[in-house]
Structures are given as structure tokens and as C-alpha cells.
Design a protein around this nucleic acid. Sequence first.
DNA 1: CTGAAAGCGCTTACAG
DNA 2: CTGAAAGCGCTTACAG
Lengths: 327, 327
Amino acid sequence: MNVSTATVSLALRDSPLVAEQTRERIKDHARAIGYIYNRRAASLRTSRSGIVGVVVHDIMNPFFAEILKAIESELDRSRQTFILSNHYDQLEKQRTFIDTLLQLGADGVIMSPAIGTPPEDIIVAEENGLPAVLIARTVEGAQVPVFRGDDAYGTALATNHLISLGHKRIAMVGGTDQTSTGRDRYHGYLGAMEKAGLPVDPAWRISGPRTKQGGFEAAGQFLALKDKPTAACCWNDLVAIGLMNGISRAGLVPGVDVSVTGYDDLEEAAIATPALTTVWNGQREVGRQAARALLDKLSGASVKPSQELIRPELHVRQSTARPVERS
Amino acid sequence: MNVSTATVSLALRDSPLVAEQTRERIKDHARAIGYIYNRRAASLRTSRSGIVGVVVHDIMNPFFAEILKAIESELDRSRQTFILSNHYDQLEKQRTFIDTLLQLGADGVIMSPAIGTPPEDIIVAEENGLPAVLIARTVEGAQVPVFRGDDAYGTALATNHLISLGHKRIAMVGGTDQTSTGRDRYHGYLGAMEKAGLPVDPAWRISGPRTKQGGFEAAGQFLALKDKPTAACCWNDLVAIGLMNGISRAGLVPGVDVSVTGYDDLEEAAIATPALTTVWNGQREVGRQAARALLDKLSGASVKPSQELIRPELHVRQSTARPVERS
DNA sequence: CTGAAAGCGCTTACAG
DNA sequence: CTGAAAGCGCTTACAG
């Protein structure tokens, strides 16, 4: 060939500094010998890796499915490789992952922070050249952009819907107060009840469940409540569907004997039996905007550490109806 | 500090070549200045990256959840970083991913190959130093280890169970003949029917659906069959649950009017209404063994390109019962 | 037990 | 438009 490595390097990256003919000749030859570009070497030199990390509680949770898909398609477009990881709400796992990203020289990270994430964890990452963007949950004190749904508004939507149907005793099933999301959703429910002048019995708060299995198991507790509520405002669709399954198993009919609302509007909500009334959470938007914000940061734009709240929408289906007064 | 970089390098990796005192001094100092190990540089030098790629159709599909978790925990133990990707059964996406792995100098790849993967794709990867292990699906002609369930045996289990309950007209809903899995499962069903001397109407094969949504939509087609089958042997749990939802929506009772079997035994199968009779597929074993095999390959052991078939088990629940003869 | 030197495969000024 | 040289941050023989 008789060209210098510099020329090869430029040619392969389509630099106009190389004559078209030379460029083609080099490219053909590269293809012919099965040349494999060594990104480690390039990255070592440029300190850009083309890698973006994404870490959430559990990538297998369908709640994240749409978010991740949106992130994936945004990043694909910018030819960034993305590395996914679960932290299962364990700070240690999250730290190990961030460490790995730093060692690999990742360009940035999108994270749904684990419960108890101190702002320092994020600050340290940023100081070491790993810009971060948060999704779904906030970390107080971390000066980074956050993208999530307006959770308080969303559960208020669901609760108001139940109230307007005539329900007065409404339980809130699932979720935990240890996350900003959990607190916000609970407050949305409380606020709606208060505004309607309805009393709230602390026993109506069944906290904890976050999965279908959890919702299923919570059915027993729910059905055993004295002065049983006529409706349940659930933490998410998984809990709602599990709860409905548990209610069916006990011989009652969800959507008739007990009204149930979900949260997230998973694909599954529409085909559940009965079809689930739920709150659409804008997951796709969350993913898209978070990825965009990170890419902006990477290209040097100054992204201010704002809270972006996506406005949820109520999707009414068959799992909610007027209360049946048993006398 | 006054030590050479060589000493630092050795000290940080706990080499016995460095005096304990020196080692501690170096480590303390590294911590103090917030030293971050540069894996790109190390990898460039050693040509070992500590990265393993995993690519499947869709990581959000719950079928892969247990497999991925098992792989994750095996790889974690060997301190390998794993990079996950979806190929959505698009060869191009799969190729791009393998290319990325090659460029990053990944140590190996575990893949559930996309439909139509030619053996060359795998051979090229291996020749470029990226050993591969397959899960769930086989690629004829690729000399690599494969780990999957014994699909034909599994659907035969389900079909025989239905036959033993007295069903004679049994449909097979979902899946595609374009994958080895699809063909194997269909053959298991066919074989069981034949062995029992039962005729099979080609119209009973409703191929295609692989998701809950797909199963839900297939309900219409199933219920419209002339001489409607009394049972459906489904491609997987998602299809089965979707089908049951569709059957309910049409006013029939799954598990009574129509018996339904699933495949995979997802967590969800046990809490479906009715609880789903299904075939446990040994996902955890598949993931564990595949990861082990790859790690063995990485550590230089010679791993023969065998087919490892995990033996499935039937889990009987409430979605199957004797046929109701309507006269 | 520790240090000086070479080299992994790129990219980027700098010369020509 | 092309080439020679330096350097990114490690690890690994090799000397001492």
C-alpha cells in the first residue's frame, strides 16, 4: 500500500484531507483484509469512548421497557453503544457499575438512581468526566437534569376518577415511601382525597408491593380490611393486575365488586381482564428526552439541571365502575 | 511517592512482587487522589477487556429474564462486565453489535441468534478472537456450544397431558417455523398427537403470535375454527395468557370451556387467572451453563461444541381440565 | 524487591 | 494532499 498510518486513519474516517482515490483504495484494502477498528486505542487517544451507561432497578421490569427502547433508538442514531445494568436498588451494585463506566471511559450515564443514592455519588461521577442524567427518580442535591412523570398529578387523576364514580373508601396499594416517586404518588392520592373532603384511614395504605406477585399477595390484606374499601388506587399496573388476579381468586369480580386503577399504562393494561383503567406515564417521552439531554451534554451544550415533568393522562377502561353498595 | 509506574501497576494488582509496605502506601495514595484505573489502556496492552456481550431478541421479554439474571450472576462472580443488546431478530442489528464487541475487544459473546443467522457470522467472530456460546436457538454449521431446553420433549409433555385429560381436538397456537425452537415445539406437539392416533387438522396450527398481545388477538381466530378444538397448546406463557384473556373477553371460561397450556413457566404463570398449566423450561440452568461454558472457554479450557438439552418439566395448574362436551 | 524502556493501536499537531 | 513523530495509560519482559 505504501501509505502512512496517519493517512489510513484519516481515510477510514472519511476525512476530506485525503484524496478520494486514496481513500477508496484504503477502504477497499481494509475490507479485504478484514480490518477491525480498535476502539480502545482510539478512545485512549481521544478520551471519547462512544459508550453510554444506563442503569435502572431492573431492566426486565416492563415499566422500563418503553423508556429503554426510546433511549436505545436515540443513542443508536448517534452511534453510541449503550451498556445496560440493573442495580436492584442496591447502592453497591450501582457504585460498581459507575466505577466500571469510569474505567471504560464512558461518555455519560443515564440512571434511575437506587434508593438512598447520595448526591455525592453523582457529583463524583460528573467530576470525573461522566455526565449524568436522571430518569424516574430525583436525587436531592445533585445538580443534574431529571426526567420523569408528574407522579402526584397522576395519582390525583386516578383518585379523582374513582371519587367521581362515587367511591368514598379508596385504598392505595403498593409502592414505598423510600423513593421520591413513592412519596409523590402517595401525596397525589392523599391530596385528592382531602380536596374531596373524604377521610383517609391509615390502614388503607398497603405499602410495599411493586410487582404482580406483590399485588396478588396484597389481595388478602386488602379484602380483610374492616369497612373494606370499594376501590384500590394501585402503585403501578403490575400491582393492579396482580391485585385483580388475587381478587378473582377470592371469588370477587374486579371492576364490579372492587374498582382498581393502575399506573404506567403498560401494553398489558389494555388486554388485562377486565381491561385496566390506568395512568399513562409518558415513558417514551422520558426516555427520549433523557437521551437527548445527555447527547446535548456530550456535544458540549450547557444543559441546565432542570426537573422535566411529563404530564400523565388518565386512560379509562373497564376495571373501574360505580361502587356496588351491599346492604 | 518516588516509585516507578511499573511498581504502581503491580502494587494495585496485589502482585507479591511488591513489598507489602510499598503496596499499602501506593494503594492509600491511589485512594487519596481518587485514582481511576484506565481499562482501555490496560486492555490495549493485554488484549483482554473483561467485557462479555449478550445479545437476544428482546431483553425486555420476560422469557429472557431468568436466563439473563443467571448469566449476570455468573459473570459478576468473575468480575466481567456484560453488555446487553437486543437484535429484535434483525440480522443487521446483530451484526452491528458483534462488530461493536470486536472493536471493544470483548472477550466473548453469548447469543440467542437472530432468525436467519448464517454460520459464517459466528465463525468470523470466533476467528477474530470473540468466542461464542448460543442459547435458546441453534445455528446449523456453527461449531459452538448450545444451551437450550428440549423443546420437542416439552410440548409433547403438554400435549400428552391434554390428551390424557380426554382432549382430542387440540390446537397449537403461536410461534414460528423460522426458528429451530419453533420447529421443535411444533414437532413435539405433532409427535404426541400422532402417537396417540389423533388426527391433526392443519387449520389448528395458528402460527405467528409470540406475545401476550398476539395471543389475545389469536383468540378470535381460535374461537372461529369449525369443529372448535377443546384445548390449545400454546407456544409460550405470554401467548397462553393473552389467549386466556381473549377467551374471557369472548364470554367463555378458560380452564373450563377451553383448556390452555403455556410454555416457560414464567413467574406470572402461577398467578394468572386461572393459574396456568405450563412447561418449565430450565431457563436458569440455560443461563448458568452458558455463562460457565463461556468462562471456561475464556480461561483456555477446550469446550466442545455440544448441544446441551435441559429436560423440561410439566407444571399442572388450573388452566387445564377434562373437556366439556357440549351437546 | 524496584526501575527504565518498549509497545499495544490509534489520532493529532506539525512539516513538507 | 501525505508522512514522520509523539503520546494517550497501561503491562511486561529485562536489568539491576
